[in-house]
Structure formats: C-alpha cells, structure tokens
C-alpha cells in the first residue's frame, strides 16, 4: 500500500465524516434536552434537497448551505410541535417522519428537479502553512469549508452545553425536567429550542452531503447516515469532542471498505464483508461503550404542571 493510498483513505474518511458529524452534534443538543430525535435521516434529506435545489436553480452552493439552516429550523418547529406540544411518541413519530421525508423529498425531486444537472462540488481549501505538513496537511488541512466548520461547530456545541447557562438549562431539562420547571424555567421552551437548533445542524449536515459530493440530489441520498449519527452520539457519550472521534472512526472505516476491496490480500475477503465494516465497527464501538447513560428524561414527554394533554 503506497502512501498516496493511505492518505486517500484518511482524506476520504474525513470528508465522509462531515455530514455525520453535523447531524450527530445536532442530535447531541436535542438529546441533552430530553428529546430523542430518531428523525435525523429525514431532517438531513430536507437539507440535501434544499441545497441541491438551490444549486440547480443557479443560486450556488453557499446559498444552498445557508438556506438549509432556516429550513432545518422550520422542520425543528414541526417536530417540536409533535414531541413537545403534542407529546407524541418520539420513536414512532421519528420513524414515521423519516418515511414521510423520504417520500416528500422524492416527490419534490421528481416533480421539480427532474433530470440530473451538471456535477459540481465545493472546492478544497488548503490552509496556508498547515497544508504543507507531510501526510497530516493533506488529510486535515486540505478539505472543503464544511469540514473546518464542522470541527469549529463541535467546539461551539461543547461550549454551549457546558459553559453557558443556556446549556445548563438544556441539560437540566433532559435530566430532571420537573426540577427545572420548579426552578422557574420553561421545559417546553427549552426543548423547542434544542430541537430547532439540533434540526438546523442536521439539515446543514444533509446539505454538506450534497455540497461535498456531486451537487445533485438523488432519492435517499443520505443512505442511512442519520442512523449512524444516532449511534455516534451514544458512542461519543453526548460529548462533542468524543463525537468527533466516533465520526472519524465511521468515516475512515467507510473509506477503507472501498480501498480494501481491490487491495492485494485484503481483496480476498468478499466485497459484502468490507461493505459491512463501518456498521460492524460502529455497533462494536457502541457495545464497548456500554456504560453510556442516556439523559434521564430523554425520550420521555413532559407535561408542565397544571397542563393537560
């Protein structure tokens, strides 16, 4: 295996990590506040379609990425209404939302984005100086803007959750919502905020998937990445820095599977075995992280005192 191949595996792995990382960061915020958003896949599809749409209409990749944020926030409002206001079962409605999103995005794609456009994607940006570092420079510092922003977002999400009052309130809403309410805070408002912020990040993650690959939408373009993000949040124990590690692990194993299929003695294994590798690694990692503990009230609808549902 020459160095170009090894570098390629990591360069590709980091690129593959990015949409999953955005989605996982969004899910971490949401779960910390006590909402289990199974519908990540659906939210990501919304972002992917938005971005592809804007690219097709000539508005550009940047516009597509930026527009995915309010679209994600709007989806967050809808999901919040279901889960916070209506107290709907988060798992069942999350699954149904994924199916609905797949149908709606496919319908919109077929009706309004028919045909495939010219392939386009974000340019890579070499960070001056750092990109010259052997191996590491090409792997980490010659990526597109969404990769750098994702790493920055992880830091910001960590600061939000662990270094601000708002983050403390969010976490309390996910751990002891009744106590949070007793302290005079509105648990529904906190949960609304978390789902809206989280969905915006997930939607942006879906948009990066399009922006980093072909610029075009295809049916089910997310291909299960939302579910991987769900697992990575558990693997990363709701800590943004550990979540980065989980996302890198997934991305690199996904990149490795394609290289390994045609690489000397590794190609002796059936292609299907390599294709299963990222998911096997993710499952094993989650199992090994068995001591992970969900926020106490995660997935449990909250009824404010005195309110009826």
């Amino acid at each position: 295996m020459n160095s170009d191949v090894i570098i390629s595996v990591f360069v590709t792995g980091i690129a593959l990590m990015t949409p999953v990382l955005w989605a996982a960061l969004g899910e971490a915020i949401t779960e910390r506040a006590g909402i289990l958003n199974i519908g990540i896949e659906g939210v990501m599809l919304g972002g992917a379609l938005t971005c592809a749409w804007c690219i097709r209409e000539g508005a550009g990749i940047t516009t597509g990425l930026l527009l995915s944020i309010p679209v994600g926030a709007l989806i967050g409002v809808i999901l919040s209404y279901l889960w916070v206001t209506r107290g709907a079962d988060q798992i069942v409605s999350g699954i149904i939302f994924n199916l609905l999103a797949l149908g709606v995005t496919t319908l919109l794609f077929e009706e309004y984005l028919k045909g495939v456009g010219v392939v386009t994607s974000l340019d890579k940006i070499a960070i001056p100086g750092l990109s010259e570092i052997p191996w590491l420079g090409e792997i980490l510092f010659t990526q597109n803007i969404t990769v750098y922003l994702a790493l920055l977002a992880a830091v910001l999400v960590f600061l939000l959750l662990h270094r601000t009052w708002f983050g403390l309130y969010l976490r309390s809403a996910g751990e002891k919502p009744r106590a949070t309410e007793t302290a005079g805070l509105s648990v529904p408002r906190l949960r609304y905020a978390s789902v809206i912020i989280g969905s915006a990040l997930m939607c942006f993650g879906g948009a990066t998937l399009v922006a980093s690959t072909s610029g075009g939408f295809v049916t089910n373009v997310t291909a299960g990445q939302g579910f991987v993000a769900l697992a990575i949040v558990v693997l990363g124990r709701w800590n943004p820095f550990l979540i980065i590690g989980g996302a890198v692990l997934f991305g690199v194993t996904q990149a490795l599977q394609f290289q390994a299929q045609s690489l000397g003695f590794l190609s002796a294994l059936p292609a299907e075995a390599w294709l299963a590798l990222p998911y096997v690694v993710t499952i094993v990692a989650v199992v090994l992280a068995k001591s992970s503990r969900y926020p106490n009230a995660c997935g449990v609808p909250f009824t404010p005192a005195g309110a009826t549902r």
């Binding site: 593959l16 949409p19 998937l209 980093s212 690959t213 072909s214 075009g216 295809v218 049916t219 089910n220 373009v221 291909a223 990445q225 996904q254 394609f258 299929q261 045609s262 292609a271 299907e272 294709l275």
Partner: peptide, 11 residues
C-alpha cells in the same frame, strides 16, 4: 469495487 447501492453518491 462494489458499493452496494445504486444511489449512494458519497460512497
């Protein structure tokens, strides 16, 4: 290389 998908652009 087989990617086990018709539509997975990223893969």
């Amino acid at each position: 290389v087989y990617i086990n998908s018709w539509t997975d652009v990223a893969a």
